[in-house]
Design a protein around this nucleic acid. Structure first.
Lengths: 223, 223
DNA sequence: AGCACACTGATCGTATACGATTTGATGTAC
DNA sequence: GTACATCAAATCGTATACGATCAGTGTGCT
């Protein structure tokens, strides 16, 4: 326990609830009662309340005055909106991170994508999803603009919360996804411009979104 | 005063401080002391603290544990990051709002842009800035994706907070800006695709950003 | 039976209080 | 004169307490 321990209780509450929502321990609709969480953390309700309000701002929980907070419900509209946002921001973040994509970076990305291909052969969708998240993190993670980076991370956290609830998973996309990753890495290896990287990355995200929309009988995204 | 009055004190505090930051009453660096604001609102520090933390999440205030909050400082890096974010999101929001751009909408947008041109002749930069904000709000305002809309609005609020502090204003851009607005409206009138609208809008934002970067002796944005 | 209404238990919203932490100033040694 | 230790005032972080509000339930009336 000799660790820094500079974190506030409000921060601890945020971490706890946030993690439980993202990894699915708290399912959509779960009622977040301040007093209960406060007891669990051994603190009072004030810091918990602050944490909940932060999560509300992130869109992970729904809050009603004088009633309380619940983990946000997932529906096709929310999924569409989140994916659309990510489809716009992540490619830009990736393009802006182009400077950091050197040979070592490429090697790591290729290794990860190869591992994803292996997951396909092993029929291991859980590992595939985990690695896919990691791969994309590698793409946008070095974005030098902290605002954009933050937005991308929030989007992925929301997606994680949804995926944990088994809301959506389209196996047929997985194989194409790995190939698109491959093509994107090839582009980067050949010193494509940031604009080209953004375009390719956007196409990749759009394909994923449109595959879902098609499976739900909805028209493809306008952009 | 017979109004609904369902707003919480925390909400009132948020509105007050937020407005003062955006309209410049609180300048960058201004120290936000919980007790002082609480006294002014006639409430205790708890709701004020909550409001401040919300503003922190929005990026309008800087917060240090055990020290307190100050209105976020504006520097060229922050301005660059905010503009870059807006350059990515606003064109997408505008493209997604294409469905709502009918004849009536076009007429209003043209009227507003004409008024902006008049401001140029009258050398009235304050009115010009206000109308420019309004014009862009007209562009993205009908975006059907609430997440994206929210991000754009937050970006503009940050810009407003910066502009109020007279951080940046490039008169030479104003004339070109009006012409680019004109061209964009022409595109929309001719039923351009959402993708085309996005591209034109992005170019418009990029021009503004790059004009600033050039004036500051910095290289243009990568995307 | 069906509807309206009062009541109750649970939970939230905020005030107040107090310990914890930081900052800046003062004094002292070198 | 500079560097450092010490101290006091200011401010924050959180616990506790209590009034306010809401969802659910039971009762009486039509």
């Amino acid at each position: 326990m000799g660790a820094v321990m500079t974190a506030s209780k409000s921060e601890a509450a945020y971490q706890l609830v946030s993690e439980r929502i993202v990894n699915g321990a708290y399912s959509p609709g779960y009622r977040l009662v301040l007093g209960t969480i406060a007891d669990e953390l051994g603190c009072s309700v004030v810091p918990v309340r602050e944490a909940i309000r932060r999560l509300e701002a992130e869109g992970l929980v729904h809050f009603t005055r004088n009633v309380g907070a619940t983990v946000a419900h997932v529906d096709s509209t929310l999924y569409l909106h989140t994916m659309q946002t990510l489809m716009i921001i992540e490619p830009a973040a990736t393009a802006l991170a182009a400077d950091a994509m050197d040979a070592a970076w490429l090697a790591e990305a290729r290794k990860l994508n190869d591992a994803m291909r292996q997951c396909l052969e092993d029929f291991d969708p859980v590992a595939f999803t985990r690695m896919n998240t990691e791969f994309h993190k590698l793409l946008y993670g070095q974005c030098p603009n902290p605002h954009i980076l933050d937005l991308v991370q929030r989007g992925w956290r929301r997606l994680a919360a949804m995926r944990a609830s088994s809301f959506t998973h389209i196996p047929s996309r997985a194989k194409a996804s790995v190939q698109e990753h491959e093509a994107l890495l090839e582009l980067i290896a050949n010193h494509a411009t940031p604009a080209q990287i953004e375009t390719a990355c956007r196409a990749h995200r759009a394909n994923t979104l449109n595959a879902y929309l098609a499976s739900a009988g909805m028209p493809p995204s306008a952009i």
